[in-house]
Simulated assay, not measured.
Amino acid sequence: MKYVLLGEDGASAEEKLSGYTGVVPWSYLRPHCQNGVLYFLDPALALTDVGAAIARNESTKVEAWLKSGDLVKLGEVHSVQWEKESPEFESLVVSPFVLCRPVAW
């Protein structure tokens, strides 16, 4: 019998994280925004790539995305807009952070 430690299955971080992505309504994301852990991604970035960089603690990459505006911490201004529109978001949880972007651009 072969035992494998959880997480050591040969899959990349991106492959593992793809299982934690999904489409959710704004109501699911609202509490994360209120807690200050919700981040919006530019459509040019893949959720799993950003999530993997966060999981690997690749601070240089994450800081570059934050500085360029490709990754933005969401606040009250965004929340007000989406309360009215109620869009759906593609989302990924990389605890303690939640990454998102609207499904329809």
Rank of each mutant, 00 (worst) to 15 (best):
A44D: 14
E58N: 10
H78T: 03
T21N: 03
P96E: 05
E15M: 00
L6S: 15
Y39M: 04
Q34T: 11
P31Q: 09
C100H: 00
K16E: 08
P31E: 12
E90S: 12
S68P: 01
K67D: 15
Y20Q: 07
F97R: 10
A52R: 08
A52Y: 04
H32F: 14
E90N: 11
V50Y: 05
K2M: 14
E83R: 09
K67A: 15
P25H: 06
N57H: 09
S12E: 06
A11M: 07
K73P: 01
S86E: 15
S27K: 08
S27I: 08
A104P: 04
S68R: 10
L99K: 03
E14T: 01
C100N: 02
R101C: 04
E76N: 07
L41P: 01
M1D: 10
E90D: 10
P43D: 13
K2W: 13
K73M: 13
E85I: 10
C100Q: 01
W105K: 09
G51P: 06
L17I: 14
C33Q: 13
V62F: 02
A11Q: 07
V62L: 11
V23Q: 12
Q34V: 14
T60G: 11
M1A: 15
Q81Y: 06
T48Q: 11
S91P: 03
A52S: 11
G51A: 10
A44K: 15
D42G: 05
W82Y: 09
G19R: 01
T48A: 11
G75E: 06
E88A: 12
A64Y: 05
R56L: 08
A64D: 08
D42Y: 00
L29D: 04
Y28Q: 13
P31T: 12
L5K: 00
Q34N: 12
M1Y: 11
A46E: 15
Q34Y: 01
T48D: 11
K84E: 15
W26H: 02
D42V: 00
A46I: 13
G7F: 02
A55M: 11
V24E: 06
S79C: 10
V50H: 05
W26P: 03
K16W: 05
A53Y: 06
A11V: 00
V98W: 05
Y39R: 03
G51E: 11
L5I: 04
P25M: 02
P25T: 05
V72I: 14
N57Y: 07
K73I: 11
Y28K: 12
Y20W: 07
S86C: 12
E76W: 09
E15I: 00
L71M: 03
Y39P: 00
Y3E: 08
K61G: 09
V103G: 10
T21D: 00
K16D: 07
L38Q: 07
G19T: 02
G75H: 02
W26G: 06
A104V: 14
Y39N: 06
P102K: 13
H32P: 10
K2S: 13
G51V: 12
V23N: 06
V50Q: 07
Y20R: 09
I54W: 03
F40C: 09
E76P: 12
L92Y: 01
W105M: 11
L71Y: 02
G22D: 02
V72G: 08
M1C: 15
W82C: 09
H78L: 08
A44Y: 08
A64E: 10
F89Q: 09
L6M: 14
Y28N: 13
